[in-house]
Design a protein around this nucleic acid. Structure first.
Lengths: 120, 120
DNA sequence: CGCATAACTTACTTTTTTATCAGTACCTGA
DNA sequence: TCAGGTACTGATAAAAAAGTAAGTTATGCG
């Protein structure tokens, strides 16, 4: 759980309140979020079980919690079909889709950095 | 300290090895890094004490450790002047400067997201 | 009835990251 | 000689993030 009054939490809050960059990173910075977002950017929508299969190594707990956070931040839409067995589909919202150029530039820069520093 | 063989560490390693985005985020994702990088982007070079003053709330230990990581990742250059009292200046490397468009796009998107979600 | 299935929960532990706070070395000017 | 500035280091503790493993729910099918 989060302790809202710790220096830790307060520092994070202060940073995010003043800096768009810190704020944005807090939204996409979870361990598995980039991976999840990447999958969703490349396919219209995905079921929970598809995401689980596509992302090797992720636990159910992590998959759910990252999805819930993305949903709370209005980046991902969760659609439940009242069937048995259940079916739940995840898709990017418009706000989520607006991340594409940013995510692309992060990805490109990362690959560039990796290449450049590998030469040493 | 880091335990290189934990599932946690292995997961991170695997993600970063395959995904430029995860890799890039691991370089700029520290609590204070965006702040430090922002300052350095906006001024040619800064002394340790200037950074400390510019970034309210950061502890010396955090400032040093974040700078050291940035240095290890070849994003920041550390120049020591053998004077008394000591003078140490930090500046972005060329690789560091190459982050500007990426950081700008992260920042812009963050501000946009904040504005849009504040309307609810 | 009892099993299978999808999409989760819950309880708990481990690992990682941040914070706190007290040093250190060096010379200098008073 | 002694306080003061600069740029740190180290030990320890607190907080947060991530991982592990075992439930849960609802229902259609054999």
């Amino acid at each position: 759980m989060r302790k809202e009054t710790s220096s830790n939490a307060l520092n994070e809050k202060k940073i995010n309140a003043t800096c768009g960059m810190g704020y944005a990173l807090s939204l996409i910075g979870g361990r598995w979020k980039s991976n999840i977002l990447w999958r969703l950017l490349n396919s219209d929508k995905l079921r929970y079980s598809e995401l689980r299969r596509l992302i090797p190594g992720i636990s159910e707990r992590m998959l759910v919690s990252q999805l819930r956070e993305l949903e709370a931040d209005q980046l991902v839409l969760r659609v439940v079909y009242p069937e048995v067995p259940p079916r739940v589909e995840y898709a990017l919202t418009d706000l989520g889709k607006s991340m594409r150029p940013m995510l692309q530039s992060i990805s490109d820069w990362g690959e560039m950095h990796r290449k450049v520093t590998a030469e040493d």
